[in-house]
Design a protein around this nucleic acid. Structure first.
Length: 492
RNA sequence: CGGGGCGUAGCGUAGCCCGGUAUCGCGCCUGGUUUGGGACCAGGAGGUCGUCAGUUCGAAUCUGGCCGCCCCGACCA
């Protein structure tokens, strides 16, 4: 392993791949298209899970778990949904292997063990969940049903990238059922807001909340909402989606309830999800050529302490001092790690923890012991200063807060700089090929125009921002009238 | 599935055109000196050169088949 990560500005993809590997987050597995999430990477995902799960529960949701396999007939019940995912499904057709008579020591699929009905490995769980909801829901008293599941799903994509797109990925999918359309829409928007709040408060990632166009909508949904964010190379990334399903799945799976008025009606549904793709967003939004930059709220280790010592005695002396710091910080709910390995030198440790994105580093050596000081370094700006040991438990929590907001502000400024309003197709193309980022432009609302623009420029409509002001204009492509600007970008 | 590239130690590579039993760096192990920004010196271990066949006295190198991977496109959270 070389020492320098390839530069971010030179080759963003290469930088990203190397960073993911070197920071010990994940690697490609021996299984094509799949990813091994390593302990350090997984510990960040766990922090995300904990924060999200708490928010879900605070809004009345409960976790449950549904099967990985979906019988084909069940899967195809909601036609649009099935059609949308058909091209990327893994299918189980057999349930047994046997010894291959032609190939001693090898196994073959036992042709006698063919399943009567094929099982689809879930690319998403609407089908299996709604077929279960049919049994759970009879009356308005059973509603709303607010359920989330943490699971893995499989989508057989042709090209994969660590965290951003892998054949199998981890996610959370919420599936709710309601007695009225209004309530379901409200739930859809509420969950979108929760995702946005999570992205901004925890990931320090500014997002734009919006609605997808018909062409980009989740198959089977009436309306798809999303949060879109901007990566450092000027490409957009969809960080989460929340769908209003209308009565589509209720109709497909015959989920009816009796209302207060005694009338039978189909229930209204929502579904919403975020995935390990958020890890990709987190990495690409903040990191630099020295490695990861983690927002303190998601950092598995918030403060690392590197003792500088020449022998056992010095280490012992430092450790007694350090132990006090560790205890004091733990009392303040700060996650601290003492890196007392004697197999690596301090310089190596500095570089390693920077690579892993630990927000704050303390270095303490004999010089400090004599002076009652400690060196404190922050990862985001790489500033270092020497402070009084006795001040540490006062300084650290404030510094972590400061880093959290400062990373957010930096990302916000960067993102806002990459939002460009254009009024002509020429300008549009020029911006995309120049500084890239989000382009705000008028669009006539037609699927054809959207598809043409995508074909010609690779830019898609990321969303119609919820807070987009009404503004009369003409479509940059067709010249037809438009009442709002929409957000275009090239995207991951 | 189309177009391009690659397969040599745990990782990254040189050698291939022009055939003679494999180079270098990182990492690993041992000993010593080091330790406030990725240490240094000395020694050492580790390879059926993707695979099968062909040509040849002799193949990492030439020829053909197969397998695998990567990049670009269509698909996508």
């Amino acid at each position: 392993m070389g020492k320098e990560i390839p530069s971010r500005s030179e080759d963003y993809s290469l930088w990203y791949n190397e960073l993911v590997k070197r920071a010990d987050l994940a690697e490609h597995s021996d299984v094509k298209g799949c990813m091994v999430i390593k302990p350090y990477g997984y510990s960040i995902w766990e922090k995300m899970q904990q924060a999200l799960d708490k928010m879900f529960k605070e809004t009345g949701h409960a976790n449950a778990y549904f099967p990985l396999f979906v019988p084909k007939s069940m899967f195809e019940a909601e036609e649009k949904n099935a059609e949308g995912f058909a091209k990327e499904c893994a299918i189980v057709t057999h349930y047994r292997l046997k010894n291959d008579p032609k190939n001693p020591g090898k196994l073959m699929v036992d042709p006698d063990a063919k399943l009567e009905e094929e099982l689809v490995v879930r690319p998403t769980s609407e089908a299996i969940i709604w077929s279960t909801y049919r049994k759970w829901i009879q009356s308005y008293r059973d509603l709303p049903l607010l359920i989330n599941q943490w699971a893995n799903v499989v989508r057989w994509e042709m090209r994969t990238r660590l965290f951003l797109r892998t054949t199998e990925f981890l996610w959370q999918e919420g599936h709710t059922a309601h007695s009225t359309s209004e309530e379901a829409v409200k739930e859809t928007v509420q969950m979108l807001n929760i995702y946005a709040e999570f992205a901004e408060k925890f990931m320090a990632l500014p997002v734009i909340k919006g609605r997808k166009t018909e062409g980009e909508r989740f198959p089977g949904a009436v309306n798809t909402y999303c949060i879109e964010c901007m990566m450092q190379d000027g490409k957009a990334l969809q960080a989460g989606t929340s769908h209003f399903l209308g009565q589509n799945f209720a109709k497909a799976f015959e989920v009816k309830f009796t209302g207060k008025d005694g009338k039978l009606d189909y229930v209204w549904g929502t579904s919403w999800g975020v995935s390990t793709r958020l890890m990709g967003a987190l990495i690409m939004a903040h990191s630099d050529d020295d490695g990861l930059v983690l927002p303190p709220k998601l950092a598995p280790i918030q403060v690392v302490i590197v003792p500088i010592f020449r022998n056992e005695d010095e280490l012992t002396r430092i450790k007694t001092e350090v132990e006090k710091i560790v205890k004091a910080l733990q009392k303040l709910d700060v996650t601290v790690k003492l890196d007392d390995r004697d197999t690596q030198k301090p310089g190596f440790k500095f570089a390693e923890w920077e690579l892993k994105g630990v927000p704050v580093r303390l270095a303490i050596g004999p010089r400090d012991l004599d002076a009652g000081t400690v060196e404190i370094a922050r990862r985001d700006t790489k500033e270092k200063k020497v402070v009084q040991l006795s001040d540490i438990s006062r300084i650290i929590p404030a510094l972590l807060e400061e880093i959290q907001t400062s990373i957010y502000q930096r990302a916000l400024k960067f993102r806002d700089n990459l939002i460009t309003k254009v009024d002509t197709y020429d300008e549009f193309k020029k911006v995309l090929d120049g500084k890239a980022g989000f382009v705000l432009a008028h669009w006539d609302g037609s699927l054809e125009t959207e598809a043409k623009i995508k074909e010609e420029t690779k830019a898609t409509i990321r969303c119609i921002a919820l807070d987009a002001p009404d503004e009369a204009g003409i479509c940059i492509y067709s010249g037809e009238p438009s009442s709002k600007r929409v957000l275009f970008a090239r995207a991951y």
